[in-house]
Design a protein around this nucleic acid. Structure first.
Lengths: 200, 200
DNA sequence: TCGTTGACTGTTCATTCGACCAGCGAAGCA
DNA sequence: TGCTTCGCTGGTCGAATGAACAGTCAACGA
């Protein structure tokens, strides 16, 4: 393996470990030593590749939010009302499956979104704003929001309803006996979400 | 003030500060020194009244989840279908208002619920299990869950959809321009939630 | 082939963490 | 009034933190 390939592979291992750690314990409670151990490297190497813990967090956020792009199916450009409703349902199902496979996204959002600081503003401008305008456009969940002013409420209702059960999977298992990581449970949640947000 | 009163008042100030701190930064990232500073006492006093950080967290969780009790209106015992639907709507509205006023509950749940450890199990058995069986009973959001097996999914959809926007209020302001702490926004979210979970 | 670059290691630094403890002084009791 | 209790302070402990550093050695370019 060339030096450049080795460098990229190592950086990738660190970012992957960082995503898991930050999602698991939040930014402040994650240590660069723990991340290094998960990636199988030394702690000094983490600050070598990513100057600071903050820079590493941005790299991790960029990667995990980037996964969302391309996962959601395109909404039809010109279609009948019925077709648009069917497409909206399929978008919602796709999002639920994504949230089940990557609960990290939800944890990054909640961890950063509750503080009015630089990391929150960076996340909004870099990762969230481009998605938000598309999700709330007509044909997405625009069918849920009765008027334009309700779009932010529909957006957070959709994200929260679709993600929480997977974000607190251990609690869900203990409280309800349902393991939300099982495929049957994921599909059941997708069914409920589609029916909730795009009723017959 | 008597010695007992002074003791209780001090303990209460510490618990209040702990709720804010734990909700703000999670358990691991909160320090007993920061909590002590918020409460206006010394750090040593925190471990004096509450033997450990873990004990303090349990006291804080007991208080904040206890607030939820008595906040939700009772569901009618014997009522017509229309009355039960109206009651379910009012329960949902009440929960949204509570989530807006106390986003700490959501943060406690997400912070503890993602790890399979003692704190999660304690939270489930002490604070969540009693509520869960009542919320998912007929007349609550039972109208949402088509069958018994869908109840856990409806439960987490309701909590997530009703809480997230308030839990990430700074992000919501930055992303959408909507301030979810304003009364008008709270009522708008309550409207959407009632319509979503108990449609016409 | 030889000098240079750069990925990586191991150590060190000041700071902060939860927990512990000796001592103080006013409230409460006899 | 004198003694005891106990809420509370201030300091200290080892452990863990993010960052910085000099040193090492193989990959690379001239």
């Amino acid at each position: 393996m060339s030096r450049a390939e080795q460098r990229d592979a190592t950086r990738q291992r660190i970012v992957d470990a960082a995503i898991t750690a930050f999602a698991d314990q939040g930014f402040a409670a994650s240590s660069t030593r723990d991340i290094a151990a998960r990636a199988g490297v030394t702690q000094g190497l983490v600050t070598y590749h990513f100057d600071s813990k903050d820079t590493l967090w941005r790299a991790a956020a960029t990667q995990i939010f980037g996964l969302l792009v391309g996962t959601l199916p395109d909404r039809p450009r010109r279609a009948s009302n019925a077709e648009r409703r069917a497409a909206a349902r399929e978008q919602i199902r796709a999002y639920v499956r994504f949230a089940a496979e990557h609960p990290e996204v939800f944890h990054f959002m909640v961890d950063a979104g509750r503080h009015d600081d630089d990391r929150m503003r960076w996340l909004v401008q870099t990762c969230l704003a481009p998605r938000f305008s598309e999700i709330t456009a007509d044909g997405g969940i625009g069918s849920v929001a009765a008027d334009r002013a309700a779009a932010p409420h529909a957006y957070y209702a959709l994200l929260g309803a679709g993600s929480l059960i997977f974000a607190v999977a251990p609690e869900c298992r203990e409280l309800t006996g349902v393991d939300p990581t099982r495929r049957a449970a994921i599909e059941r949640h997708a069914d409920l979400m589609a029916q909730l947000f795009v009723p017959d």
